[in-house]
Nucleic acid binder design. Structure first.
Lengths: 189, 189
DNA sequence: TGCAAATACTTAAAGGGTGTAAGAAAGGTG
DNA sequence: CACCTTTCTTACACCCTTTAAGTATTTGCA
């Protein structure tokens, strides 16, 4: 009965990997336990329950995504920064569909404050420093951008663009052109 | 042992209602059977399996949403049409969170053709008739709009805007102003 | 080093969900 | 009314979640 060396971190990481492989919905405590060569009940010593595990994966994904966006944003401004931000976001979602799905789990106001989601807001504001926008326009623009990035990727991955022959990559690129124009000509109240 | 009068349509409708109440994720064949006063196994005479049931709810939701958008769009053009389209979309998502979640289920290319999703594409093109856009710009604009509508609602309902005091309604309204400006000044290739 | 305390894991079991197969009951039809 | 079809139930196999109690392993401290 050798020990498997399970920790909350390894469990979370394994759950994230499994999610990318088989889909976040299909990640179960049982499947995870099998991966560690351990009985399902053993995992409850490291993680409160299945929901706790899901939230840990959400946090992992949000953190990784923030890291990528931060790296992409470094040293760039204006449209270059916009494109780098957007592509970092979309690429992550495509490379890690399971993690990305976890990142979309509901976030209650209490945990939202301490979550890596806060870093995303900061990064978005950093992006907008290259454009001439001050609050509350900045907040509105961030919400529009965030919505567009997430929504586009979401529709794309659920097959909404597959009916039309137009390349989703090209449309994406043109959407970024459009958003750049929009940010430089944001309509005043 | 009186008959419960279960049909695929009633089942789908009940599943949709239940989804709006308790969340689409929590809709089970068992819970549905309880609602009809019937044993779970009985439902498999009307529906292939749980996945089939989910897809039926998806189709119901897509159809209802298309109906609403079509009604909102009737007799309107330009920005008025844009706002009506967008609000019909967002209002539906808020009134029917469970149905809306079902509408986001993956859509394979084969069923996408026959699905009510096709009507959404047509409606989006109708909306853009009030703006001076021809293909492929029109397709790109549709994808951007669709992404933005869905993404904004998605972020809003998952609590992403709750950390900031700015009203999500006001940001939404300003986003529509911005999109109107964008559509009237769509950047050429 | 040795042994007690803490930790990791197993077994056992209850409870719920999915889905198939076989049979009973209800409804329609000639 | 007898028959056939459809609807529903019972029974069962299987999987997942989670708790409780017990066993094994490791840690750390005297």
């Amino acid at each position: 009965m050798a020990r498997a060396g399970v920790t909350p971190e390894r469990l979370t990481s394994a759950a994230a990997d499994l999610a990318d492989e088989i889909g976040f919905q299909n990640v179960t405590v049982s499947a995870l336990a099998r991966g560690f060569g351990v009985k399902p009940a053993a995992l409850y010593a490291h993680v409160k329950d299945a929901q706790d595990l899901r939230f840990r994966v959400r946090e992992l994904a949000l953190g990784e995504l923030a890291d990528r966006v931060a790296a992409a944003l470094a040293g760039r401004a204006g449209k270059e920064a916009l494109v780098a931000f957007a592509n970092a976001y979309r690429d992550y979602a495509k490379e890690h569909p399971g993690r990305y799905a976890a990142a979309q789990l509901e976030l209650d106001p209490v945990t939202a404050a301490t979550s890596a989601a806060g870093r995303h807001a900061e990064l978005a504001r950093a992006l907008l420093r290259g454009y001439d926008l001050s609050d509350p326009d900045q907040t509105d623009a961030i919400r529009l951008l965030g919505g567009t990035f997430h929504g586009y990727v979401s529709l794309e991955t659920t097959g909404r663009f597959a009916t039309h022959p137009r390349s989703a990559d090209v449309s994406w690129s043109r959407a970024l052109d459009a958003l750049d124009v929009l940010l430089r000509n944001w309509p005043g109240a």
